[in-house]
Design a protein around this nucleic acid. Structure first.
Length: 496
RNA sequence: GGUAACGUGGCCGAGUGGCUAGGCUCAGCUCUGCAAAAGCUGCUACAGCGGUUCGAAUCCGCUCGUUACCUCCA
C-alpha cells in the first residue's frame, strides 16, 4: 500500500494506522437504515462517509467486502409499547403488510442514496432474512451463561457479562452509573436488571411479525441482527465497523457484548468508526425532534426549511467539506456555498481535459514542478489523516488554482514535465471522481438549449443563409435530433 | 444527575505549540466591446479570564455559552 491510512478508532479514542487482519482483504460493516421512514440528511451523511472510506480503501489497493444491513424487524418503539415492532406499528396504521412497508422504504432508501452516487454495498443483508442465525447466536450466549429466559423471552445478563469482561468499553459507560440512573424503570419488567437487553422477545397475540424459536413465537432483539450478520459475512473478527455516533450506545456496546459472549471471547470489530450528526441551528437533526429533512425533499425543495432545491451532488459536497467526526450544521447558505464549490471543482475537470498533451514540450520549470508535486501530496495527506475530506478538498482547490493558471497561460504548461502533469491530472480526476465520488451533474436543459438553437435556425432561414441552415441541421443530426419545418412553425424530434 | 464533546473571521468549515487551510460573501486590481469565468490583492478570527512556555487557536485551570449520549435514532 502506497498510502498509510490513519483512522480514529472509537474503541481506543486514538488515531491508529489502519492495518487489516488479512491483507489485502478488508471487511467493513455499516449499520444501515431501519426502513420505517424515508431517508433524511443524517442517513446521507453516514452513507456518504462510509462510501468514501470504501472507495478510498479500494483505491489504495485493498479488496474490500462492504456489508450494510437493512433493519426490517426488531426495533422497539419505546418501553411503553411493550415490544411492539416499529415496522408493524406503521403497518397497522396503513393497513399494509409489514414487509410491504419495509420493502417500500427500502426502495426509497436505495433510490435516494444512490442518487448521491454512493456505491452499493457488496452484501446488503436483511434482519428478517437472518432469523436462524440470530437464534443460533442466542443459543450460544445462553450456553455460555450470559443470558436467561423469562416467559419465552431471552435477555442478556449485562451484570454477569460485566464481571467476565467489561461492559461499556466502547462508549466509556460505567455499569454502576447506568444502573443508578435508570432506576425509574417500571417494576413489572421481566429483566433482572435495567441494563439488561432483549435477545429474543415473545410476541403478543396481536403481534404479526413473528418467528418460531426454541423459546417462543417471537422476534429477535434489536441489537442482535448486526452481530449475527456481520459474523456471517465477515467472520467472528473483522476490520471495520461503522455507524452514526448515536448508535455507539447502546447499540454498538450491546453488539460488542453479544459477539464476545457468544464466541471466542474476542472483539468483533477492530476499528470502530463513528460519524457525527447533522445539526440544525446547533441541534441534532433527528426523528424525535422532527427537524429532519428527507433527501427527496432536499432534491425537490419541498420543505419549510428549504429556500430552494438542492441537487444530489450539492448535498454530497456539503457533507464532504466537513470532517466526518465534526457536527455539520445545515443551512441554506451553507448548501448554496457548497453548490458553488462543487461547480468549481467540476469546472477543473473540464479544463484538464482540454490541456492534455501540452505538457513537457518546453524547458522544465524546476520550482513549479516541485510545487505541483507538493500540492498533489497534500491531497492525499488529508485522506490519510482520518479521512479528512475537508482537508483534501482544500488541497484540491489549491491544485485547481494552478490548473486554472496553466490553462489561462499565467503559468506555462510547456514547462511542466509530462510526469508531473500526469501525476497532477490523474490525482485530480481520481480523487474527485473515484474517491470523493463526485460526478458531473448537468444543469443544462435540453429543451431550453434546443429552443435557443432553433431560434438561430429560424433567423438563418429568414435571412436565406442556407449554408448556416444546413450546418445547424447537420450538427443537430449528430446529436440524434432532427429539425422539422412545419407549416405552423419549427419543431424538432429525436431521430428515428 | 452521570458521561462526552464543542465554542475559529459576514456565513460554512479545516487546523493540537512556531509555517497561507479551503469554500462562499464583500471590496479593489488584471483580463474584457460589456460581462462572466479565471488569476492577484485586501477585509473583519481563534468565547472570556488566568496559567505553563522563548512562543498557544492549539497544553492546563476557572468562568460563560451550546450540544450530544444515558430511550428509538445515521
Amino acid at each position: 500500500m502506497q498510502q498509510k491510512l490513519n483512522l480514529y478508532n472509537t474503541l481506543t479514542r486514538k488515531k491508529e494506522e489502519f492495518q487489516p487482519l488479512h491483507p489485502p482483504f478488508v471487511g467493513m460493516y455499516l449499520c444501515g437504515p431501519t426502513v420505517y421512514g424515508e431517508p433524511h440528511l443524517g442517513h446521507a451523511r453516514s452513507a456518504v462517509t462510509f462510501d468514501v472510506l470504501y472507495r478510498y480503501l479500494k483505491f489504495i489497493g485493498y479488496k474490500v467486502r462492504y456489508v450494510r444491513n437493512i433493519t426490517d424487524v426488531g426495533h422497539l418503539v419505546n418501553d411503553a409499547d411493550e415490544g411492539e415492532d416499529k415496522i408493524q406499528k406503521l403497518a397497522k396504521l396503513e393497513n399494509l403488510e409489514p414487509m410491504e412497508v419495509a420493502q417500500n422504504y427500502t426502495n426509497i432508501y436505495h433510490r435516494d442514496i444512490s442518487r448521491l452516487n454512493n456505491l452499493p454495498p457488496d452484501i446488503e443483508p436483511r434482519a428478517s432474512g437472518h432469523i436462524i442465525e440470530q437464534i443460533e447466536m442466542i443459543q450460544e450466549i445462553l450456553e455460555n451463561g450470559f443470558a436467561y429466559e423469562v416467559n419465552g423471552s431471552v435477555y442478556f445478563d449485562v451484570e454477569k457479562y460485566n464481571k467476565a469482561y467489561k461492559y461499556g468499553k466502547l462508549s466509556g459507560r460505567v455499569i454502576e452509573d447506568l444502573i443508578g440512573n435508570t432506576r425509574t424503570l417500571d417494576g413489572q419488567d421481566e429483566k433482572r436488571a435495567s441494563v439488561d437487553f432483549a435477545l429474543w422477545k415473545k410476541a403478543s397475540p396481536t403481534h404479526i411479525m413473528r418467528w418460531a424459536s426454541p423459546w417462543s413465537d417471537g422476534f429477535p432483539g434489536w441489537h442482535l441482527e448486526c452481530s449475527a450478520m456481520s459474523r456471517k459475512y465477515l467472520g467472528k473478527t473483522f476490520d471495520i465497523h461503522g455507524g452514526g455516533l448515536d448508535l455507539m450506545f447502546p447499540h454498538h456496546e450491546c453488539e460488542i457484548a453479544q459477539s464476545q459472549a457468544s464466541h471466542n471471547h474476542t472483539d468483533a470489530a477492530r476499528y470502530w468508526i463513528h460519524n457525527n450528526m447533522i445539526t440544525v441551528g446547533g441541534q441534532k437533526m433527528g426523528k424525535s425532534l422532527g427537524n429532519f429533512i428527507n433527501l427527496s425533499e432536499l432534491f425537490n425543495g419541498n420543505h419549510d426549511m428549504l429556500e430552494q432545491a438542492y441537487t444530489p451532488m450539492t448535498i454530497r459536497f456539503f457533507i464532504l467539506q466537513a470532517h466526518y467526526r465534526s457536527t455539520l450544521d445545515f443551512s441554506n447558505d451553507a448548501l448554496q456555498a457548497a453548490r458553488k464549490g462543487y461547480s468549481k471543482l467540476m469546472n477543473g475537470l473540464r479544463i484538464l481535459a482540454k490541456m492534455d498533451g501540452q505538457a513537457g514540450t518546453g524547458e522544465p520549470d524546476q520550482k513549479l514542478n516541485e510545487e505541483l508535486k507538493k500540492l498533489v501530496e497534500d491531497c492525499f495527506k488529508g485522506l490519510n489523516d482520518d479521512l479528512n475530506t475537508a482537508k483534501t478538498i482544500a488541497s484540491l482547490f489549491n491544485l485547481l488554482k494552478k490548473i486554472n493558471s496553466l490553462y489561462l497561460g499565467q503559468l506555462t504548461i510547456a514547462s511542466i514535465t509530462t510526469e508531473v502533469y500526469t501525476l497532477l491530472t490523474e490525482t485530480y480526476r481520481t480523487l474527485v471522481l473515484d474517491v470523493l465520488g463526485l460526478q458531473q451533474e448537468s444543469t443544462a436543459d435540453v429543451e431550453e438549449m434546443l429552443h435557443l438553437v432553433l431560434g438561430f435556425y429560424k433567423e438563418a432561414k429568414d435571412t436565406k443563409a442556407y449554408d448556416k441552415v444546413d450546418e445547424i441541421r447537420a450538427e443537430l443530426k449528430k446529436q440524434g435530433i432532427v429539425i422539422k419545418d412545419l407549416k405552423t412553425g419549427i419543431d424538432w424530434a429525436y431521430e428515428e
